[in-house]
Write a protein that binds this DNA or RNA. Sequence first.
DNA 1: AAACGAAAGTGGTCAGACCACTTTAGACTT
DNA 2: AAGTCTAAAGTGGTCTGACCACTTTCGTTT
Lengths: 218, 218
Amino acid sequence: MNTKQENKKVFLEIVKQLQELIDKEQIKPGNKLPSERVLSERLNVGRSSVREALRSLELLGLIETRQGGGTFLSSGQHIQLVEILASFILKESRTVEEVHDTRKMHEKEAIRVICSDKSLIALPVWESLFYKIEVESEVVRHHILREFVITSGNRLSLKIWMQLAAFSATPLKKITTEQEKPILLVLLKSIQLGFKKEALEAYDQWMQHLNTIKEIEN
Amino acid sequence: MNTKQENKKVFLEIVKQLQELIDKEQIKPGNKLPSERVLSERLNVGRSSVREALRSLELLGLIETRQGGGTFLSSGQHIQLVEILASFILKESRTVEEVHDTRKMHEKEAIRVICSDKSLIALPVWESLFYKIEVESEVVRHHILREFVITSGNRLSLKIWMQLAAFSATPLKKITTEQEKPILLVLLKSIQLGFKKEALEAYDQWMQHLNTIKEIEN
DNA sequence: AAACGAAAGTGGTCAGACCACTTTAGACTT
DNA sequence: AAGTCTAAAGTGGTCTGACCACTTTCGTTT
């Protein structure tokens, strides 16, 4: 079948036809798709070709498959491909500095977003972070920064940030209470008050402080 | 092999092993990957499983295949998943917004970096962009924004931005000279002078203007 | 009516076969 | 000897059939 001379990949054609089928059959997120064997018959292609298309869509997070159960239209959150893309991108340009800069970019943007949204700065999260500062642990910094990005509400940014954080993970010493804690207090307090400028300054100061620590440790 | 512990998907495992192989064998963009038959033998899996993984990566634009030629690590940019994802994703407005927000984040950060670096604002690029504004084309906006990110010098940010730009590509009308050009002039001029605040304001104004256009067209 | 269990359905994987196309290398021509 | 041409090898593209593991379904049994 498919006399199509066009040099188009067939599995891409199947992907396209699957979309049309989903649209035509009014298949909503969570609904079941026809089985691979049925699809292969309806589209006049081999089952392996159908599978190549389905596996692609699964990697993109657009569908979910359960062995013995069937194939289902994903109910959202299809951002998991970010992880695969990120790992490839990071492999190519794993300049430590660039990763760090990009990561800071996302963190600062999160702070900006939070400070501009009254409903976000009113969240109880910040209070709990005050307590976290007291708990001297190596991962507190990571937790705090992650909380920033999470609270900002951009799930995509969070995905990217998590990848970057995984690459630039440089386990440092515990929080140095004498110097670091006051900075963090200012940062958190500024956020709670919605003082964007002050928060960003505190953040910069914090990062600068961390660099100092790193140099000392090396 | 397949000691198969966890219920992890095998084709995902192959994707992972392919990444490791690319890393270990020092395969650079444009280089050839082992043939499907060789991979199937080396990884102790069936050829069809290898193909499912390869097709997934191809859909992501991470590899390219030429019939009779072989499989090659992509030299980038060829992202055909855009169309597929777009039709799936465009229904979820929240995701679209997140992509757009994240993209703007990278663009604004690029502007900040540029304005803070005298050697960057002195570049002849900006002069050439003035001319580009005159050329009424649909892709001028994309070119300008890309130039920002490129000039900022963070290649990782550029790669992320390119992915995001591919997703959020919403072909608009040509630049509306009456309203848009003056904004762009202010933006470029502000950058040349290193006026960070003014440049960012002009950028925001620009984005706002683009939103207005989009609403009108819909 | 509830519980159980066999059968059907479905995804997961593999092997083999053929096709179309590209690359390679040897035979041929000059 | 150099270049050209063609056949063979290599490679991706696709299909078929088979078997496995798991889930769902439904009829039988209790």
